[in-house]
């Protein structure tokens, strides 16, 4: 468990040292949510319907925008070589990335969501099903993003390409995530993508270790 803890610790330290920390992601979400009433007007009934969509859009956007931080930044400056040679198990490296990335980029949204929902006059009972789906769905999305990032390490720095690969894979999560009753399917989907992601990311890392 020590290697797992160390690697998560390292990623969290990088996040805290640089500007890409919790505050950054949290303020990003707040900004997107604040933009919405300017587009759709201040009718609270309409805003309440849109709110759920905004949350899922912003979480997909944050997954897409931070995709290069999963493995690419470490690959570019050579830290990935260092990590690969110091840790025997690829699976632990990957699992550490899942946890660290989810904590840095998805947890802030889930934490501030109840407070943001106050702006749209939603009660806790309205927001609770969304919250559960968001926790499960964002984990699944992080699994998918990790293997996309690991597999596209050798590609040139093109966020568009990675987006084209990533977005179709995220669609099922969004579809089941938006529906409050489909959390069992969401769990199954996340578990499936976890299994695929472990194999695919390890394959990608092994290729770039070479």
């Amino acid at each position: 468990m020590k290697p797992l803890y160390d690697l998560i610790n390292r990623d969290l330290k990088i996040a805290f040292f640089t500007s890409s920390n919790f505050l950054f992601t949290a303020s990003f979400f707040i900004l997107i949510v604040v933009l919405i009433p300017f587009i759709f007007g201040s009718d609270s009934e309409q805003l309440r319907i849109i709110f759920k969509g905004i949350i899922w859009i912003s979480i997909s956007l944050s997954i897409l925008l931070t995709l290069e931080r999963i493995f690419y930044s470490d690959y570019e400056d050579g830290s990935l070589d260092l990590i690969l040679q110091r840790y025997e198990s690829l699976e632990i490296i990957i699992c550490a990335k899942y946890i660290a990335h989810w904590v840095i980029n998805c947890l802030p949204l889930i934490v501030i969501l109840p407070f943001l929902s106050l702006l749209f006059q939603l009660t806790f009972s309205d927001i609770f099903p969304i919250l559960i789906n968001l926790v499960i769905g964002s984990m699944g999305m992080v699994f998918v993003a990790t293997f996309v990032s690991a597999l596209t390490l050798g590609a040139k720095r093109t966020i568009f390409l990675k987006g084209i690969i990533l977005i179709p894979l995220l669609v099922p999560f969004i579809i089941f995530g938006v529906d409050p009753h489909s959390w069992p399917i969401l769990i199954a989907l996340s578990m499936m993508s976890f299994v695929i992601s472990i194999y695919a990311s390890a394959y990608g890392l092994r290729l770039y270790g070479e």
Partner: peptide
């Protein structure tokens, strides 16, 4: 598209 672009990007 993703498949085709990937060939060109690497």
């Amino acid at each position: 598209l993703a498949y085709i672009f990937l060939w060109q990007a690497i």
